[in-house]
């Protein structure tokens, strides 16, 4: 039997010492909602699992109107949903968490795990690698079935979509992320954490093999109007086909600044300054929201079977904007 070591450190310092400096050797176990399927599908075969759930300082939600919201990496989706301060001040985040429809995943899955989970590309999960090439080096995505793949940031060689539910709203709120590794703490904007890999050796995250996500910091609420809209085929647990999270700084009815981030459309959560720009100095109407949706997908392209997602992303942006100014009304 292929053995797996199981380590359960009490501090983040111990945790990173237990992690190898190359990918594949070790794996971090938090909620395990993705890790276990990766193990069972034989996508990864680490020799050691490092359970970080015993590290107390990775837990907890703290809110201060002047400092903002601090989420420990181990905060579960359910804890996030249960926190009235999150719902009150960061509705786009709460709405994105609501899109995770499985009570089991809400109870076990963590916010850190949501950001670190691997793509759901069916070729990747079938063992063809993150970039999904066959033995001849052909892209299976380009030549095969790409109905759920990227419409933006899809110049290659990566065509999967970022599966994170929470990254789009976090990026919309200009949240920052803290990582801890052998060299100490690193901090970066959440959007900088995601990157499009250029080779099979790279990952979709700026996370080193011996680092862990420790906390997420969201700036204090500035009275923005914010919302998330998911286009989903099923009400039951299902990956959205396209999502958008928006955060609008308002001066009365007028937008002064905007952040618009799409999910499930690109290998990374897709920040669209073009869409945001169309809103500045505007009062939100159906037409204005529509124009922002158009701008958000202006550079999108179909890989063959996923052209419909361009329309879905356009609608997600439009509806997220309208929902934001309607105060989160459904």
């Amino acid at each position: 039997m292929r053995p797996i070591e199981y380590a359960s450190p009490r501090t983040k310092e111990q945790a990173v010492r237990l992690l190898a400096s190359t990918w594949g050797e070790t794996a971090v176990l938090a909620g395990g909602t993705d890790l276990l399927s990766l193990l069972k599908d034989d996508v990864i075969a680490p020799r050691r699992l490092v359970n970080i759930k015993e590290i107390e300082e990775l837990r907890g939600i703290a809110f201060d109107p002047r400092k903002g919201l601090r989420l420990g990496a181990l905060v579960t989706i359910e804890e996030l949903l249960d926190d009235p301060r999150v719902r009150q001040h960061y509705s786009a985040l709460a709405e994105a968490a609501e899109g995770i429809r499985s009570p089991q995943i809400r109870n076990m899955g963590t916010v850190g795990g949501d950001l670190c989970q691997r793509p759901r590309c069916w070729y990747f999960r079938a063992g063809f690698g993150l970039l999904a090439r066959d033995a001849q080096g052909r892209s299976l995505v380009l030549h095969g079935d790409n109905r759920y793949h990227a419409i933006l940031g899809n110049e290659g060689p990566a065509y999967f979509v970022s599966p994170s539910s929470l990254a789009p709203p976090l990026i919309a709120y200009e949240a920052r992320l803290r990582l801890f590794g052998p060299g100490g703490t690193r901090e970066m904007p959440v959007q900088a954490f995601f990157r499009i890999p250029q080779s099979e050796e790279e990952r979709e995250h700026d996370l080193r093999p011996n680092e862990i996500v420790t906390e997420i910091l969201i700036p204090p609420p500035r009275g923005e109007a914010s919302a998330t809209y998911e286009v989903r085929q099923r009400e039951a647990l299902d990956w959205p086909l396209a999502t958008a999270s928006v955060a609008l700084q308002m001066d009365g009815d007028r937008v002064t600044a905007a952040r618009i981030v799409m999910g499930h459309v690109a290998p990374i959560p897709w920040l669209s300054p073009e869409a945001a720009q169309t809103l500045v100095n505007k009062t939100i109407t159906e037409d204005v929201a529509q124009a922002a949706g158009e701008a958000a997908v202006r550079r999108a392209r179909s890989l063959g079977r996923n052209g419909y997602k361009i329309q879905l992303a356009r609608v997600a942006v439009k509806r997220a904007i309208l929902r934001a100014v309607q105060g989160g009304a459904r």
Partner: peptide
């Protein structure tokens, strides 16, 4: 060949 992309109706559907 999984219940992630082989979709069945859930209660809400």
């Amino acid at each position: 060949p999984n219940m992630e992309f082989y979709k069945l109706a859930g209660l809400g559907d």
